[in-house]
Design a protein around this nucleic acid. Sequence first.
DNA 1: AAAGTAATTGGTTAAAATACCAAACAGGAA
DNA 2: TTCCTGTTTGGTATTTTAACCAATTACTTT
Lengths: 106, 106
Amino acid sequence: MSPKLQARYQARAKIIKALAHPTRLFIVDQIANKERCVCELTALIGADMSTVSKHLSILKDAGVVSDEKRGLMVYYRLRVPCILNLFGCIEGVLKSNAEAQLAGMR
Amino acid sequence: MSPKLQARYQARAKIIKALAHPTRLFIVDQIANKERCVCELTALIGADMSTVSKHLSILKDAGVVSDEKRGLMVYYRLRVPCILNLFGCIEGVLKSNAEAQLAGMR
DNA sequence: AAAGTAATTGGTTAAAATACCAAACAGGAA
DNA sequence: TTCCTGTTTGGTATTTTAACCAATTACTTT
């Protein structure tokens, strides 16, 4: 594989990797419709705030979310809505996997 | 977060994680239109065949690809075409990131 | 049966990701 | 200023991922 092509796939992988964690998928869902501050997300997730903050920075670094500071709070929102389309596809895979397993048991 | 919801996002993350590697994204592209055997993919990628085989097993375990053995060769194909839609979205993010960076430099 | 080819599996080592705690940084209020 | 609150950053220990080599399995051909 050429170095150029390699770099191309590496850039893509970085964005997908940013999504490849349960907590970060949850975050994307939560900020899909309305912005949320770190404190709200922390409460919803139930982990240390520093942990949540780091997840958010990974998403931000990948360009998936954007942030805005207002007063003490930092609000995050989804910058790329087309990500949500992915979820439908993923659900389809899960469903298909479940069916395949059932078929295999017979 | 409830255990049930947790499990839900974990299942989704597993599939996305399977895609979150440059080589595996390349594989998905390569088998999108026509099936390929491991030997073909190995030649295209330029890594050890055992490495490629392990990448394929990760994709297969996630339900993204399916395999079929014919003679000595094992042929892999994309089981879930909607994955390809994701790539368009990802390219959009990359483009958007590049523009944001340009804007930030001014 | 023996030899050869395609693929997978096991083992090891190196690199990356993740979580928490503690400490540092704002911004707002007293 | 000093205190309080929301957020980020640094440090560390643990777990996960990834690559290659060596060995094994499966099928074909001689």
